[in-house]
Design a binder for these strands. Structure first.
Length: 524
DNA sequence: ATAGGGTTAG
């Protein structure tokens, strides 16, 4: 690994850069140590690939980036734009370091005397990576306000955050800006537009962008396949896949996740099995945990829990928590408490603080009216100090997001909204709606349970949508968790009775509700 | 010789 004696800084820089590009991060850092041992000083070409390596290294000593930071301050390289940009990016990339690293990235960013589009994009993607999509969108606006013109990298990144935070209106305006700046022809921009429109439920726009793209790649096709699947149009996903293959574009690992996801959501069991086999046989792609998770969904949906278990037992890859959570979901639908307990154990073995299994088990027992077991799960959750994310729903009207929690009275129009909820309940009762109180929390009195159901966050958001969204437009509601079964039934009926299209996107999938039907086919 | 992006997805 050593370079011949007598090599200079330029040779080391080139070697370090090659290692970093090839993903040999530890080796890049080792070369740097060797270089310093020979009395050579790092310059502005040495540091960017080093910072990159330090941030991306597997199981990194978290101090590596900070140590390089100290070193570059000493070397007087802090004001070099490429170096500072790499530093912002490195801090923003540190895995699991969370707030501290984000704050460090921000601090470096704030102290830079000059920032270009790369600086802003590094900050933006760092925020997006941490799941702070709304903050990423704010960073984009900050960049524009600072007079820095977005390029195709920045636009692609912010569109991805628009999708992540379901900001369709902002996404549309970024789209317009991109076209104005002449960025429309970039494939990355088209790809992120297709995905953004699909993820915010605007399928027609996704398709229009796709059709207008001058050139497509695997990512483009995959985005559309996933887009249709997420919106309950799994059969259409399969048609798109057929077109993709016909066009000569090769599907990859991600494409098959989307394709299996589509089969699962559309209940196409045979097609799913066939594509799973084809992935290996025709494309030589080894199935990963994501593919197994899709297959478990698919088989679970068909009630074939045994076949799902069989597939998992024969798998050659290491299975992760998502697989066991899929199995839990299937158990939830088929009310198989025994297998669910085993799946929950598998999740907890990997992460005992994951709230999902507790909630799923609790709901499952609740539906089975096994209150003792519900109490046991809750006690376990409490003892282990696990808290679940509070459920909330939101709806965007005229660019303003209105957020609701359960029994939330904080909205300025709360009185009106609650009257609307009462009216909704009355009108759907007339259509035969009966509250399914098994979905309510069990520690409430029966009448309290019904009341609690009526004021779930998704109902409040729909009621507000009925009040505030023009009659011709669909009501787009988003929920951070899975929609409750009773709300699903109720909102479907609301869509019918009020003659409205309601698009509810929950943590798992889209629900396009119209005329009493839902695109999810009542399986989610 | 150096810095940032787009497709999974819970």
């Amino acid at each position: 690994m050593a370079l011949p004696a007598g090599e200079g800084v330029v040779s080391y820089n080139a070697a370090i850069s090659r290692c970093a590009r090839a993903g040999l991060y530890a080796r890049a850092l080792a070369l740097f140590r060797e270089m310093r041992g020979r009395g050579l000083r790092a310059d502005e070409y040495t540091l960017p690939p080093l910072l990159n390596s330090a941030a991306l290294m597997r199981g990194p000593p978290p101090a590596a980036v900070a140590a390089l930071h100290a070193l570059l301050l000493h070397a007087g390289l802090a004001l070099h734009l490429h170096v500072a940009n790499a530093l912002v990016d490195a801090y923003a990339r540190l895995p699991r370091a969370g707030c501290a690293a984000a704050a460090a990235a921000r601090a470096v960013f704030d102290e830079m005397p000059r920032r270009d589009v790369v600086t802003w994009t590094s900050l933006l993607t760092g925020l997006a990576r941490a799941g702070a999509h709304a903050a990423a969108v704010r960073a984009y606006h900050g960049m524009v306000a600072a007079g820095v013109q977005p390029d195709e990298f920045a636009v692609a990144a912010v569109l991805s955050s628009c999708a992540g935070s379901t900001m369709l209106d902002v996404g549309r305006s970024v789209h317009a800006t991109a076209v104005r700046l002449g960025l429309g022809p970039f494939r990355s921009v088209g790809n992120s537009l297709v995905s953004m429109y699909a993820k915010t439920g605007a399928l027609r726009d996704a398709r229009a962008v796709f059709d207008a793209m001058p050139a497509r790649c695997t990512i483009t096709w995959t985005a559309l396949i996933v887009g249709y699947a997420q919106n309950g149009r799994g059969r259409r996903s399969l048609e798109v896949y057929a077109d993709m293959v016909r066009s000569g574009c090769r599907p990859d690992y991600v494409t098959f996740i989307g394709l299996l996801f589509a089969c699962s959501h559309a209940g196409l069991v045979d097609a799913g099995r066939a594509h799973f086999r084809s992935m290996v046989a025709d494309y030589g792609i080894a199935p990963g945990p994501d593919h197994y998770a899709c297959m478990v969904d698919l088989l679970g949906r068909a009630g074939r829990l045994d076949e799902a278990m069989d597939l998992l037992n024969r798998s050659s890859t290491e299975l992760d928590a998502t697989v066991w959570k899929s199995l839990l979901g299937a158990c939830r639908v088929h009310r198989n408490a025994e297998l669910a307990e085993r799946a929950a154990e598998m999740v907890w073995r990997l992460d005992p603080t994951d709230a999902v299994p507790y909630v799923m088990l609790s709901n499952l027992y609740s539906r089975a009216r096994r209150w003792g077991d519900v109490a046991r799960i809750r006690a376990l959750m409490k003892a282990r100090g696990v808290t679940k994310e509070p459920g909330c729903s939101w709806v965007g009207v005229n660019g303003v997001t209105h957020l609701f929690h359960v029994e939330d009275r904080g909205h300025p129009r709360a009185a009106e909204i609650y009257r609307k909820v009462e009216e909704m309940t009355e009108r759907i009762r007339g259509e035969g709606y009966v509250p399914d109180t098994d979905w309510a929390l069990q520690d409430e009195a029966p009448e309290g349970r019904q009341r609690g159901l009526a004021y779930h966050s998704e109902r409040l958001a729909v009621a507000f949508g009925l009040l505030a969204v023009p009659a011709a437009a669909p009501i787009r509601v988003f929920k951070n968790l899975r929609v409750c079964g009773d709300c699903h039934t109720a909102i479907k009926m609301v869509a019918k009775v009020y003659g409205r299209e309601i698009i509810l996107r929950d943590a798992n999938c889209f629900h396009h509700m119209k005329g009493g039907e839902c695109s999810c086919g009542d399986y989610w």
